[in-house]
């Protein structure tokens, strides 16, 4: 049994076990189009404790994805700083895994091979990576679908493969950019349970962008509210409620009222 230990290697991320204190300070970004300048981010500041699940909510098109692209190192900011454990870093690439609304599964790879893409690129042995992924199929509700191609899977399953690929990158920070935004309401609520389960098991810090207030309340330890463009942080809310949470609980309703209050100015319909 040459790879009998392989399955356990994934579980090295204990909750709160890895240092990943993230601090973002005064991050700004503007895009110029011709002579026009479009300010997208205006002095965004936030922080995430190791192992914390942070949700960022804000109106559509407010610049949340731009924010994540800066954290991921796909864009560089005009100003501000990102620190990891009090040390300034240009971006979080190499330390984080990124998951988007689009599953971005490669159509020529089956479930297992899609899931190990990150490990493969990091230079891990393909066979060992597959063994690890195979052990995780059950955790992600993909048992029996290891050899299926993405086009044979449902939307929820595809997104779980993407989540599995993200987890198997074995980073202690996950950036999730509206990961369940393209799914129907029922599938989405199931996926939220998956995410909590996986988070509990692997314990990474998670930054989750969503425009769904309920989703943020069900999942997050702390919620930041962004304004519409140019985006800045309008306020935040610590959610110290037991999981699993129900959106109908009195405390949850109170939290929701508070958040909607913060969002209200951002949600007004412009006068014609």
């Amino acid at each position: 049994m040459p790879f009998s230990h392989a399955g356990k290697a994934v579980f090295y991320m204990k909750k709160h076990g890895v240092d990943s204190l993230i601090q973002v300070e005064d991050l700004s970004k503007a895009f110029s189009r011709g002579s026009d300048t479009l300010q997208v981010l205006q002095q965004i500041s936030l922080s995430a404790e190791p192992g914390e699940l942070i949700a960022i909510i804000g109106p559509s098109g407010c610049g949340k994805s731009t924010f994540f692209n800066i954290l991921a190192g796909l864009l560089s900011p005009d100003g501000g700083s990102i620190s990891l454990n009090s040390k300034k870093v240009p971006h979080l690439r190499g330390r984080m895994a990124y998951m988007q609304q689009k599953d971005l599964l490669l159509p020529w790879r089956n479930t297992l091979d899609n899931a190990i893409l990150g490990m493969e690129i990091q230079g891990e042995h393909k066979r060992m990576a597959r063994e690890q992924a195979r052990d995780l199929l059950k955790t992600f509700g993909l048992e029996g679908f290891g050899d299926s191609y993405p086009q044979e899977l449902s939307g929820g399953m595809r997104q779980r493969v993407a989540l599995m690929r993200t987890i198997l990158c074995k980073k202690d920070i996950l950036l999730l950019d509206e990961p369940f935004g393209a799914l129907d309401a029922i599938t989405r609520s199931i996926m939220q349970k998956w995410l909590l389960k996986v988070w509990g098991q692997f314990g990474p810090s998670i930054l989750l962008v969503t425009h769904d207030v309920d989703e943020a309340l069900i999942l997050a330890d702390r919620i930041y509210v962004m304004t519409s463009r140019p985006a800045s942080i309008k306020g935040s809310l610590q959610v110290d409620l037991q999981r699993p949470r129900k959106i109908t609980e009195l405390d949850m309703v109170k939290c929701k009222e508070y958040l909607l209050g913060l969002l209200e100015d951002e949600l007004t319909v412009p006068e014609p």
Partner: peptide
């Protein structure tokens, strides 16, 4: 696909 290329870039391929 540009999004797939961005994913690979983040994975440091």
């Amino acid at each position: 696909d540009p999004d797939t290329l961005a994913l690979l870039q983040i994975l440091e391929a």
